[in-house]
Structure formats: structure tokens, C-alpha cells
Amino acid sequence: MKFIQKTDPMEYLEGQEQINSNIMQRVLGAANSVEFDKFNATDVEHALSKDNLNLNDLQALLSPVAANYLEEMVAKAKATKERYFGKNIYLFTPQYIANHCDNNCVYCGFNVNNDIKRAQLDEDDIIKELKNIAKTGLKEILILTGESQTKTPLSYIAKACELAKRYFDIVGVEIYPLNSDEYAILHASGVDFVTVFQETYNPIKYGKIHLGGNKRVFPYRFNAQERALMGGMRGVAFGALLGIDDWRRDAMCTALHASLIQAKYPHAEISISVPRLRPIINNNRINPRDVTERALLQVIAAYRLF
């Protein structure tokens, strides 16, 4: 199957819900104006002296000069985390129920044009997996699919989540973005939170590596978390695939995106994932930026402090 769809990545497709929100404009505006090289040691020290950080402080902590303060950042991030969450660690496990996908993303193994074995669990298979995972004592599960609305329609995912709720206290989904009324259906089926990775917040780079499928539409994906909260979800998760583009800018956009959603929906539980692109096929088409261990640590510490 060849799926080719030449559309402007900023243009919505038929049936995709457009909401009244200015959060995307605010995030992209910050991305276009930030100059990480302008920050100096004084800026970083000032950010580390504060309990409540603003956008300028976040940018300072993600700047090149902040790498010299990594130990101080990590120490304060650890103290901040323990202040609000104690020494608790929350565990969950992902459960893929299908790997079909309609998208043409040059960096992904699930790419619709890739010749791989596709599989999809039926109801009995799903129950079997859920029972075995529940035996471990885990109370939270994340239901995942590839992004195929044709092979894994909303009804199929909703049924899987309904089954998952029988065995787990908390059910999340990481699937293709939906309209708010569709998220409401999943919420009624037992789903508590939604994860959507933006991959990169650079619309130009986004268009170059997402060549076809519904995922190609940048703003529809961007607003997925807000639509999920409009559909009644308790929490939403964010993430950029660091390395696709400038990791400092994508990390800043991720944190700003999450914070603006939190400010607009103060009841919502917010989380951020920190995936990193590693050497893969099609490297020459992506030109990934190296995200070192120290860079990854800097991002995580900046997220926690912000």
C-alpha cells in the first residue's frame, strides 16, 4: 500500500476538529524568538535561585552555558521533585494491541510503506495479555496502537480500554489524535489520560519528515491534548522526539506547551516524556541532532524545575 498525501502540513483535513485556542501560536512565537546563545552564567544562577520559573528562566536552563551548572540543576531538580512527590516512583507498562499505521513518517518503523509483519490482537488476545500483566501487581497500563483509523477504528480501541479497566485502576492511551467528542467516547470507556508526542515543534522540519497520513497535519496533532481535556480526560502527556531538530528549542516548546495547557486547565494532570532519536535507517533524510547523555539530563532537570 502506498499512501501519498501532498498537503500543506498546516492545513486541516476534512473531519478534523478545529478548536478556539491560541496556545500553538504562543508556543511557535516563543520558538521563533528564542536565542539560547544570549544567556550567560548570571541568567542561569538567577533561574536556579527562584522557586517559580518563567519562560526566560526555562530558556536559560536549556542554554549552552547552563551545561556548566548541571550538578546544581540536578540537585535542585531532585529536591523539587521530592518536595512535591516524595521518593515515590510510579510504574506502568505499555501494551501494544496493533501495529498497523496509515502514516508515512521517514523515521518510524511502523511507516505504512515499510514491509513488516503487521499484527492486531483480538478480544481474547487482549484479555490474555491484560490478565498476565495484572498478575505482576501493576495498577496502570498504557494501551498503544500504530496510527491507523482504518485498521484500528475508535470502536476497537474503546473496547480494548473497556477491557483494560477491568484489570487496572488507571488506563491511558497512546494512539492517533482524535476529535474531542471521540475522546469523550474513550473517557466513557474507562480511559484516564492521553499521550501524544508532537515529535518536533518546527513546522518546516515536521512537514519534511511526515510525508503522508493524518499525522502530517501539524496543528491537529498539536491541539490533541487540549481536545482530550475537552473530552473529559483527567490527564495528558507531552513529548518531543529530541534529536529530530534543535533539541533545546523542542524541549523549550514541550515544556511551554505543557505549562500553557496546565494554566488553562488547572485541574488536569500533566506529564512529559523525554524520548530521544538514536541512529536509525533514513538517517541521511532526517539529519538527526546528537542528544548526549548530559544534554538529556539537562533537559530533564530543566523540565522539573520549570
Rank of each mutant, 00 (worst) to 15 (best):
N114R: 10
A188S: 08
G29D: 05
D245F: 09
K131I: 06
A47V: 06
I204S: 02
K165F: 05
T80V: 14
D122I: 00
A67Y: 07
E147M: 05
Y265Q: 01
R166E: 13
Y167M: 10
I286N: 03
L305M: 07
M73K: 06
L61Y: 00
E45S: 14
I89M: 06
V274D: 02
R248Y: 03
K215H: 12
V112Y: 01
N52Q: 13
H267I: 01
M252F: 07
I143V: 10
D250V: 07
W247S: 09
F238C: 12
K117Y: 11
V27A: 00
R285I: 09
E140M: 11
F238D: 07
A302L: 07
D169R: 01
M1F: 06
H46A: 10
V112F: 01
I141M: 05
K264H: 02
T145G: 00
R216K: 15
I97R: 00
E35W: 02
V173L: 01
I244R: 01
A295R: 11
G172T: 05
D102A: 03
N103R: 00
M10Q: 13
P275E: 15
L186Q: 03
I280L: 12
Q225S: 13
L144T: 04
D250A: 08
V173C: 02
A119D: 11
S259T: 14
Y206G: 01
S259A: 15
C105I: 07
R276Y: 00
L241S: 05
E72V: 12
S259Y: 09
K6I: 13
M252Q: 03
P288T: 01
Q25E: 15
N52P: 01
E45M: 15
N103A: 01
F306H: 09
E140N: 14
Y167V: 05
E35D: 13
L70C: 05
L55S: 09
L260W: 04
A158I: 00
F218R: 09
L142T: 08
M24D: 04
Q225K: 08
Q225P: 12
A31L: 13
M233A: 15
K165P: 04
N113M: 09
L211V: 08
